[in-house]
Design a binder for these strands. Sequence first.
DNA 1: CAGGAAAGCCAAAGCGCTTTGGAAGACTCT
DNA 2: AGAGTCTTCCAAAGCGCTTTGGCTTTCCTG
Lengths: 340, 340
Amino acid sequence: MNLKQLSHMLSLSQTTVSRALNGYPEVNEETRRRVMDAAKRHGYRPNPSARRLATGKTGMIGYVLPTGTSVDIDPHFVEFLSGLGDYARSHELDLVLSPADADDQETTYRRIVANRQVDAVYISSPRPADRRVALVNTLGIPFIVHGRSEGFDFDYPFTDIDNEGAFHEAARLLVQLGHRRLALINGDDRETFAIHRESGVRRALAASGLTLGERHVCSVVMTEENGYRATRRLLEQSDAPTAIACSSLIMALGVVRAVRDLGLTIPGDLSLIAHDDVFPWLKPENFSVPLSTTRSSIRMAGARIAERLAARISGLEEGARGEVWPVDLVVRGSVAGAPG
Amino acid sequence: MNLKQLSHMLSLSQTTVSRALNGYPEVNEETRRRVMDAAKRHGYRPNPSARRLATGKTGMIGYVLPTGTSVDIDPHFVEFLSGLGDYARSHELDLVLSPADADDQETTYRRIVANRQVDAVYISSPRPADRRVALVNTLGIPFIVHGRSEGFDFDYPFTDIDNEGAFHEAARLLVQLGHRRLALINGDDRETFAIHRESGVRRALAASGLTLGERHVCSVVMTEENGYRATRRLLEQSDAPTAIACSSLIMALGVVRAVRDLGLTIPGDLSLIAHDDVFPWLKPENFSVPLSTTRSSIRMAGARIAERLAARISGLEEGARGEVWPVDLVVRGSVAGAPG
DNA sequence: CAGGAAAGCCAAAGCGCTTTGGAAGACTCT
DNA sequence: AGAGTCTTCCAAAGCGCTTTGGCTTTCCTG
């Protein structure tokens, strides 16, 4: 059942039927009712391929997925996706993942924009002066950045959490508890979130005249194993930290294991605070010693970004507003006063 | 730059240019070279919207993503996606995720097929007599099932791992080590993989005249917390098992924690084997006691399924061949002879 | 050298929708 | 009553590609 057939059986032109269905004003309400009625009765659904050829609208939002045999997709992605998908569903949006060589995402962005394959895109895990952000900005496709980039001469729309503030709070608490040697086990410090977290920690330390020793900060891919190794390295050095801030729950697993392997305890010998993106399958309260966390649901971020993308597509949102969400500091058993 | 312009500047018809570009035989090789040359020089890329309207081909593979506020996407998904994406990239395929109400995926399948939004789909986490499989089979769109369904009067193409064999091997090893009371902490037993794993364990036990006690098998969503709870329940009952087979590494984290909480040790008091889908961020060899596993890379499965989907789309693969991959049993420190 | 086959190209008809540019009729106003 | 204004609808022109059917021209073959 296509438009031609439908309009023919209604003895109307395709124009009128199309307009009636799409809510244009220049059609009699009586006629519109007849049309909508017939459309529903015959289960007419406009062919999206035809529609997108005619209008350029696709009803899809795009994401360029970095791939490669040695490229791992962040497990956070799936949780983000839950939120995004949940919102997208309610607005009949689909998500298209365009796999790209991790070292050349630019080509793919250009392709999906030039081909009009999606109505909007989002960008995640941005770095300072991220080329992808600059690119989509000049390409002129609606977009939202999940996280922040920095150092552009233009503004852009983003949704981020207050990583700086979160880790500032975490570190401040530790300092208040008497800790003087803090360490930070961070994610990839080429990414903005990691940079922000580090400055948050530094700011808290500075407020008490302390610093973050060079050997007290690590930047690694956020795996359990790297959390373990980093912790071993930290705790086996001469001026071992008495408290650690850790950028992910998965790494925190490794931290806990390392501490145990060394015959130490949490929080007796070491206080630990980790960032929790709120996974359903791994919860900080279920660590052997309940883990203090800076908590922010990445799933909600996914939903929010879908919402903003939808708004931008339909023209309801414009401009370059950035929003920064506060992060909860949740204190549990893994922090205590500094030993000694 | 569109076809019209390109053909005009070559003084050829659109027909000839189109055919030259698409490798049709009825065009002079000399001409073809000229055309391809000009196309490359001017960066001509056929408009996919137009092409799909004309051909019905989209260059996309589809996946219906169950969503809902209380629906969690399996973290395995992201790893599967890595493999799928990596292959898809090399074949210029995109993946479209169509979010659907978890309780009504059928509508979405019908929509994406009726609208010709994708060239093929894959289905994951199938259950016996899975309605989705029956549906896509009748809808006539190329598809591959990741995993297996059962109880149909038709065959269908799938790629699965030998869950039955894997857990049979695992259980057999435990029995050989003298264990008499095994337990299984399984995933959702409405899904085929879980059913297969359970029968694998049962078969191994039966071979030695043993059985899997009703209270020795749990079926839960695969989270750390559920692994913990299940283990507590198992070990605190009167005829506690001396060995556990566990369906996921994440649950195994909970198992380990529970064992520790109870003041027991692995493998002294309890032997443990878990299934490992091979995540980069959580490795069995890095458990405090290195974990024995049945190992099968879900990432490779993703790549394979992309490969088969691509083959089906281009007509290179037909029929309903199912393939079942063997699973490695990797023995590490978490298994030992039965205590006592 | 005639006749048929093959090679190489083209015009035009789709694919199914949206949108432009009217046109006809009804209605209002002076 | 004539002029202007809405209201309501339509024919047709895209959107940019593929593909059908056919038309020349060239190449064999007997």
